[in-house]
Design a protein around this nucleic acid. Structure first.
Length: 932
RNA sequence: GCUCAGAUGGUGGAACUGGUAGACACGCAGGACUUAAAAUCCUGUUCCCGUUAAAGGAGUGCGGGUUCGAUUCCCGCUCUGAGUACCA
């Protein structure tokens, strides 16, 4: 029979499901291998052709590892809490659980059709109570731990309390809130339980704090920094504003250094690591306290301003100080005569949106407070300004301005006519600041004549001696806000008693998401959970925020190890066996969100001895984004400027006045419009007329995002119906390197389909009867076979799936030319191809007489280099590096003999034209080059 | 602005450690089969000159360099894409 992909694929997908072919074993002598995909959010739109790209690659890898004798864990699940389902619920009143369930069913159907080797027995859904029970449980562990800097790891709060009881706060070196108090053991004992809890909250790894948050009024929720892009929400594109709110936070900053160091130990794409490094934003410098000039009205709160600088060596070049308009001392520092100016500036800053502020980056603005500080090293009076180029959220919200070395300070100084003092003898500051570290210091008191390194050390030492400064490391990364004022997320397992948060009892987990009448905030502005009737802890009210989207995805890879455990998030044995993810494939858009939070939670879980590896994902690959590729038709515009119902082919639009219109890519093939389908597409085009070129209507092309409104969405279901899953799998790989972004283009899928038919044909005679022989393979057949055995092995190990597909085509072309129908050769070939095109291979495997379902665990054929040995090589002979001819020469000849052989050749002599080559380079087995 | 990635035929791409640039596939052109079409098969297909063939020349974004030899290494530039954004 001809290649009937529909029957074959359905049959094997059913077989795999019925027999749980891909169930990973928990107890086995085989080495483990964990291949993970970033689990999808099940959106209503279903999968488009770009989504499965990474899944196909990981599936090929997983199948290959099984053939190589590994016990492979290759699971799949759903990140099923999220905003779109909730937005839909608000519009329609449908419970998000219902729509989510329906969307998951669609996803599952689509995934099954592609023939993935997932172990579905381990499926997880973050919105399922059996799952989020453990997300809540991990939250409780974070609540019950603090970060001990001396031990450089998390420790239990109980231990901290013990320490407080014995020694008070002395000797505690914690990552904690800034306003922790110091007390003796007796003072601790004297505190009321509530006061003690209040103090402990400042240490917990998840804690409540009034903080400035990204508030999105349209979504009615706060957003994490990585969910905000250019002042707008990433989902939906709504404006985001800054607002102060009491919020749950995660003390990720405690792990900043370890998150940074860990990057050097994992095999991730360099750009991704770089993104995380930038996000963490470590800078090494010093903090310096500038005493406030006593002659001014001194603020009651403190008598100095603290700045952070990376160039403390330039301190003698300081000519002014700039603090953020939001700085807490602004009001107190403003002198009466400057008050009007300062107030006006603050109002102006507040009015500016985030966007304006960025667009305005080049214009200098600011205002003088009327107060001064004293430079602690030379006792100069230094004026204090406010300006919005200093950010309240970074460092201390204050900078020492060195206009000779920093361009922003330089522009500011020019604008306000402030002095610019050069501090290095190599500095050229005639037109702009010069941030050099070269040269020797001048105008700099005791560091004059020194070089950068010793100057920095000397300044830090002096500041330390004065008690006015110290070396300091600063991180850009902030603690992550961990609450959303939304319904469709994990409830926080906390209730409030006398204004203080308390964990619910572990035995009450999971804290179920209650029913509500509407998915909107309450009239008083509380989150939707405030609507839940009778939802109340006996001791007090529950927390009404839910957890953010990244909560459930920050540990899910552990749940797959032991997905049905109802006593632990995963058993010790399962974690000891599976340990970590060996290969993780997913998009780079999660660089500073999911991938950072996951590393953070993993490190925490490691600290409290629940998991065994410091890093969760050993190797990570980013698959490229699949962009859309839109097609256009060109509507003719008549003299009055109105659109007509006539369409001009793309090659002719220069001669007419036209306007482009998107046309459904599914009715265009190789840029040729199917005119009948176009007329049927929409009623208005029923009588459309066309100006053709060469009898065809050619469409225009543009690369855009894949979206319904652009009619460029290609659905995998359609392609599978037409060509089958095996063709789709191979074509997605054939498209190009996995990591490269590219527009989807269905042109060319025919080639892959033809290849599979040709492969099928090898096993059949002219009338499609299955025919293979038991004869001994020929040398040529074995050579083709072993070439592909080696090639696929090498390609998969380096994630070069596209080159494997080409090589398969070459192998099949060769074997077809050889008229190979040899059982031994074909059977090995089936195994090699099975990772890419599993359905057709299963079918042929059984036809060859093997047991159904055994192919997935067959052994990958062993490569034998002996079959590839050649005794002759067609040496390219070049003159001055330009290839002129090929000469067949025995590989047993040595360089000298090859040179003689080549020079004796008549054609070579003709090229040389009687001249003697200056030099002959012979690389054995590679090339002969003559220099004349 | 900064950081990173990339640029190869009409198209997607290949060339793994510096050694025959354009594999494989699409498209296109021509042919075979057919009453015809589809499907299938065969041949050709980087560009220029020539054209029956041969022979020749140019060529991997641009300009230099190292080398017997560079798509590959080095320096400078242009463009495209991604990330980031007054980070002190």
């Amino acid at each position: 029979m001809d290649y009937q992909f529909k029957d074959i694929e359905q049959k094997w997908q059913q077989f795999w499901a019925d027999n749980q072919t891909f169930k990973a074993e928990d107890k086995t002598d085989k080495p483990k291998y964990y291949v993970l995909d970033m689990f999808p959010y099940p959106s209503g739109a279903g999968l488009h052709v770009g989504h499965p790209l990474g899944y196909i690659a990981s599936d090929i890898f997983a199948r290959y590892k099984r053939l190589k004798g590994f016990n492979v864990l290759h699971p799949m699940g759903y990140d099923s809490f999220g905003l779109p389902a909730e937005q839909y619920a608000i519009q329609t009143g449908q419970h998000p659980a219902v729509t989510t369930e329906a969307n998951i069913a669609t996803y599952r159907r689509q995934l099954d059709q592609i023939g993935f080797s997932f172990d579905w027995s381990r499926e997880v859904r973050t919105s399922s109570p059996d799952y989020y029970k453990w997300t809540q449980w991990i939250f409780m562990q974070l609540f019950n731990n603090w970060y001990n800097k001396d031990a450089d790891k998390a420790q239990s709060i109980a231990k901290l309390v013990e320490h407080f009881e014995k020694n008070g706060s002395a000797g505690v070196n914690a990552v904690a809130d800034e306003e922790i108090s110091s007390f003796t053991a007796d003072e601790w004992e004297a505190k009321s339980p509530n006061e003690q809890q209040q103090e402990l909250l400042k240490y917990r790894l998840t804690y409540l704090r009034e903080s400035t948050v990204n508030w999105c009024p349209a979504l009615g929720t706060v957003l994490a920094n990585d969910e905000v892009k250019d002042g707008f929400s990433e989902r939906g594109g709504y404006p985001v504003e800054q607002k102060k709110m009491m919020q749950w936070s995660m003390r990720i900053t405690a792990y900043a250094e370890r998150l940074l160091q860990g990057l050097d130990k994992i095999d991730w794409p360099e750009p991704l690591k770089e993104m995380q490094r930038n996000w963490i934003g470590k800078s090494t410098g010093a903090s310096v306290k500038f005493p406030i000039d006593a002659q001014n009205s001194k603020p009651a709160t403190q008598n100095y301003i603290e700045v952070f600088t990376t160039r403390v060596d330039t301190i003698f070049g300081v000519t002014f100080l700039v603090i953020a308009p939001e700085h807490e001392l602004v009001a107190e520092l403003t002198s009466p005569d400057q008050k009007a100016g300062i107030d006006a500036y603050i109002i102006q800053t507040k009015k500016k949106s985030e966007l304006d502020r960025m667009a305005d980056a080049k214009t200098v603005s600011g205002a003088f407070t009327g107060s001064y500080v004293i430079n602690p090293l030379n006792n100069e009076k230094v004026p204090i300004y406010i300006a919005d180029y200093v950010l309240a959220g970074y460092g201390t919200g204050a900078v020492m301005a060195v206009p000779s070395g920093d361009q922003r300070d330089f522009l500011f100084a020019r604008h306000f006519s402030l002095p610019v003092i050069p501090i290095l003898d190599t500095q050229d500051i005639t037109v702009e600041a010069d941030p050099t570290k070269e040269g020797r210091y001048i105008n700099s008191d005791f560091i004059n004549g020194l070089a950068y390194k010793e100057a920095t050390a000397a300044v830090v030492a002096k500041l330390e001696a004065l008690g006015l400064g110290k070396a300091k490391v600063n991180f850009r990364m902030r603690d992550a806000i961990f609450g959303r004022q939304r319904y469709w997320g994990e409830p926080v397992p906390v209730y409030f008693k006398e204004g203080l948060p308390h964990l619910i009892s572990e035995s009450d987990l999971p804290l179920l998401l209650p029913e509500v009448d509407k998915y909107l905030p309450t009239e008083s502005g509380e989150p939707p959970l405030g609507r839940a009737e009778g939802w109340k802890h006996p001791e007090g009210d529950y927390e009404l925020s839910t957890m953010p989207g990244w909560a459930g995805s920050s540990w899910y890879w552990y749940r797959y190890m032991d997905a049905h455990n109802d006593r632990e998030f995963a058993s010790k044995e399962a974690i000891a066996y599976w340990k970590d993810v060996d290969l993780y494939i997913g998009g780079s858009e999660h660089a500073t969100g999911h991938l950072l939070y996951s590393r953070f939670w993993n490190k925490f879980l490691k600290d409290i001895d629940l998991v065994v590896e410091e890093e969760p994902f050993k190797k990570l690959i980013n698959q490229g984004m699949i962009q859309g590729r839109s097609n256009f038709v060109y509507r003719l515009i008549d003299e009055e400027g109105r659109g007509t119902n006539t369409f001009v082919s793309h090659g002719l639009i220069g001669r007419y006045k036209t306007s482009p219109l998107h046309v459904d890519v599914n009715i265009v093939e190789n840029e040729v419009l199917n005119i009948n389908k176009f007329k049927a597409w929409r009623e208005e085009y029923q009588d459309a007329e066309f100006i053709l070129e060469n009898g065809k209507y050619i469409c225009g092309v543009e690369v855009e995002k894949m979206s319904k409104s652009k009619f460029n969405v290609v659905n995998p279901d359609d392609l599978i119906a037409r060509y089958g899953a095996d063709t789709l799998r191979m074509y997605e790989m054939f498209l190009g390197p996995l990591e490269q972004s590219k527009p989807w283009n269905t042109n060319g899928i025919e080639g892959v389909f033809k290849f599979l038919r040709k492969f099928w044909r090898l096993f059949h005679n002219d009338v499609w009867e299955f025919t293979v022989t038991g004869a001994e393979p020929t040398k040529a057949e074995l050579k083709s076979l072993h070439k592909i055995i080696r090639k696929v092995e090498e390609d998969i190990e380096r994630f070069s799936f596209n080159t494997s597909v080409s090589s398969f085509m070459i192998a099949i072309n060769e074997l077809t030319d050889l008229k190979c129908n040899n059982r031994k050769v074909l059977q090995d070939l089936v195994v090699v191809l099975s990772a890419y095109a599993p359905h057709i291979c299963e079918e042929l495997w059984v036809m060859l007489g093997n047991g159904a379902g055994t192919l997935s665990y067959a052994a990958y054929p062993k490569f034998n280099p002996a079959y590839l040995v050649e005794d002759e090589f067609a040496y390219p002979v070049s003159i001055n590096g330009k290839t002129k001819m090929n000469l067949n020469i025995s590989l047993s000849l040595e360089s000298k003999e090859i040179e003689e052989f080549v020079l004796a050749n008549a054609d070579v002599q003709r090229y040389l034209d009687g001249k003697q080559p200056k030099k002959v380079i012979v690389v054995k087995g590679r090339i002969v080059n003559m220099v004349v």
